[in-house]
Design a protein around this nucleic acid. Structure first.
Length: 569
RNA sequence: CGGGGCGUAGCGCAGUCUGGUUAGCGCGCCACGUUCGGGACGUGGAGGCCGGUGGUUCGAAUCCACUCGCCCCGACCA
């Protein structure tokens, strides 16, 4: 490819609306273009990278026994009513009416369609396990697209759906996919960390996410470096250590003017935060719910939501608090009536707590459960943090940030039952398929790759997914010797099947080198009067500082050697 | 949906508060010339419905109303 003919120019400055680093660099490198909020075109070099990722994904899906198919993006809304997910998805679902006033959905995912498909075509257990996948555009009217390609409304996704006869089969399919996913990320040069994840209200038992570690990631990952336990902070278990037990003392009011936070309270009373109780009011599907947890921990809203089995959960506003008897900053379950109370187990690990008094500027000392207040539900609603102890081995947790680049679920049978994906087993009995689903957002993976692999000059592509492998960079192209030698090198590389971007512009060294760094192609080969003095070209890796001179006759082989080395990892 | 910000040339911006010739600047683009191993320079050019609609006014990029779009924070994101 000749640079002068490549559609998609490099930009010195990123558009003002590009905020995330990957968005800025992908736009500046001429790889993507935004047409509306969360809607992007892939320009030729961006599309090349996307297709390289896609190819690796496809190969691994096929290798794991997947069969590729294509399913419609236009889906009848009835399918979504049947599965019950029309409501669950809510406004995220793009819907519209056709000319006959019939409502259609732009598919945000294809579980419904694939289950319907299986319903019609699957008959016997002998056809199981069945692994079907597609690589297609999906549509979600996200409340807030953001971060360039990281969260968009139209995106290319690989989704595989597994159908098994029994739970053991599902486990096998699930394991196979995890293996395939690890292969994919490794082959892309983007090693991802698998973490335990929340499966959401509709998910089944197990769920794992694959995270690309990056400073800018929006997910927090909990890691134990001792036993290897890793989980999304939303999901992570927490070991709660009991504080020393004391004789319960009589409850006592104390004056705490202006003290509305746990930190201030602990400081004022000169006691650890674990001696306090934290109470936070939420609205769950419109109903008041008071959460109570020991003061040294925070409420994990995902866990709380799962426990309440509610569709909508948000923190209560001052308006919501009116008439409940709760006073913001001094909230407490003590003496509270008519409000559902959910508590974390940690409130049983300790006693003589300081809690709010539901009165301004007042707290209560020596509050003990269950002596002083009652609760409706007890469970784990704590959010894991760095410094907490690992529930498996007791080692101290570390945290890092990551970008979710894959998600696998064990779905179970709720969809196959609703949509009728049954089969006949050995005994002639009708049973629902046990399903799993396994997704990778290709565009997000591409963006995450940039988010993770860049420097102040530009992108640093891992070789397997770089749009081109080589940036061929002649200097002083108006010099006839340079022109003829570089042309020869270019033709030789093309002949050898090397993917080379040939910068055939008559531009200064600075411009070319800066564009080379911005585009981030893994190998840069420079030909100039200087290198030609020793009948050589300069060979340099984007990821490394040093360069070497390689004789012109050997440069193509040197490049091939490098490519082969990257393919082995 | 709540809060904040922004729409002027392909990109980055000034001009708007305080209305008044032909709407500017840098980068990029085109032509010619001199340079050039880390974003050189000269000369000459092309490029604008000042997001849209309606109003106020002798006169609107500028004031008012409505509207559309984009970005950020939050809510949300099976």
């Amino acid at each position: 490819m000749r640079f002068s003919k490549l559609f998609g120019k490099t930009l010195r400055q990123a558009p003002a609306e590009a905020d995330s680093i990957s968005h800025q660099l992908l736009v500046r490198a001429g790889m993507v273009d935004q047409i509306a909020t969360g809607v992007y075109s892939y320009l030729p070099s961006g599309w090349r990278t996307l297709r390289k990722i896609e190819r690796i994904v496809r190969q691994e899906m096929d290798r794991a026994g997947g069969q590729e198919l294509s399913m419609p993006s236009l889906q009848p809304v009835e399918l979504w009513d049947l599965s019950g997910r029309h409501e669950a998805f809510g406004k995220t679902l793009f819907t519209f009416k056709d000319r006959k006033e019939h409502t259609l959905v732009l598919g945000p995912t294809h579980e419904e369609v694939v289950t319907e498909l299986v319903h019609r075509h699957l008959q016997s257990y002998k056809e199981l396990p069945l692994l079907l996948y597609q690589i297609q555009n999906k549509f979600r009217d996200e409340p807030r697209p953001r971060g360039g390609l990281l969260r968009v409304r139209e995106f290319i996704m690989k989704d595989l759906y597994s159908f098994d006869a029994d739970l053991a089969g599902l486990d096998r399919s699930y394991k196979k996919m995890i293996e395939a996913y690890n292969n994919i990320y490794r082959r892309c040069g983007l090693p991802a960390v698998m973490v335990e994840a929340d499966s959401g209200a509709i998910g089944g038992k197990d769920s794992h996410e694959f995270m690309l570690i990056a400073e800018t990631g929006e997910d927090e990952i909990i890691r134990c470096h001792n036993c290897g336990y890793t989980a999304n902070a939303e999901k992570a278990e927490v070991r709660k250590t009991p504080s020393a037990a004391e004789e319960p003392l009589p409850i006592q009011e104390i004056s705490t003017p202006g003290v509305t936070s746990i930190a201030d309270l602990a400081r004022l009373l000169n006691m650890p935060e674990s001696k306090t109780l934290k109470a936070v009011m939420y609205m769950a599907d419109g109903n008041h719910v008071l959460s109570v947890i020991r003061g040294d921990m925070d409420v994990n809203e995902v866990k709380l939501k799962n426990m309440l089995k509610c569709a909508d959960l948000r923190m209560a506003t001052d308006e919501d608090l009116k008439g409940t008897g709760i006073v913001a900053g001094y909230a407490s379950p003590v003496g509270l009536k008519g409000v559902k109370v959910v508590a974390d187990e940690s409130i049983m690990m300790g006693n003589n707590f300081v809690a709010g008094a539901n009165r301004r500027d007042t707290h209560l000392k020596n509050v003990n459960y269950p002596r002083d207040f009652q609760i409706d539900i007890m469970g784990d609603i704590a959010r894991a943090k760095a410094g907490h102890e690992c529930p498996r081995c007791g080692h101290v947790f570390l945290t890092s940030r990551g970008i979710e680049v894959g998600h696998v679920f064990k779905l179970g049978t709720f969809l196959s039952e609703k949509l009728g994906a049954y089969f006949l087993d050995e005994n002639g009995e009708q049973r629902p398929c046990i399903m799993g689903c396994y997704g990778i957002g290709l565009g997000r993976l591409l963006a995450a790759a940039v988010e993770q692999n860049h420097d102040e000059k530009g992108i640093i592509w891992p070789l397997p997914i770089a749009p081109h492998q080589v940036y061929l960079c002649p200097l002083f192209l108006d010099n006839t010797e340079v022109a003829s030698e570089v042309e020869r090198v270019y033709n030789e590389m093309v002949k050898q099947g090397i993917e080379v971007l040939y910068d055939d512009r008559v531009e200064s060294a600075g411009i070319k080198f800066n564009d080379a760094d911005l585009l981030g192609l893994p190998i840069r080969v420079t030909v100039s009067p200087r290198t030609l003095k020793s009948k050589s070209a300069e060979f340099k890796l984007r990821a490394k500082g040093e360069s070497e001179l390689v004789p012109l006759g050997e440069i193509a082989n040197r490049v091939k050697q490098e490519i082969a080395a990257a393919a082995d990892t």
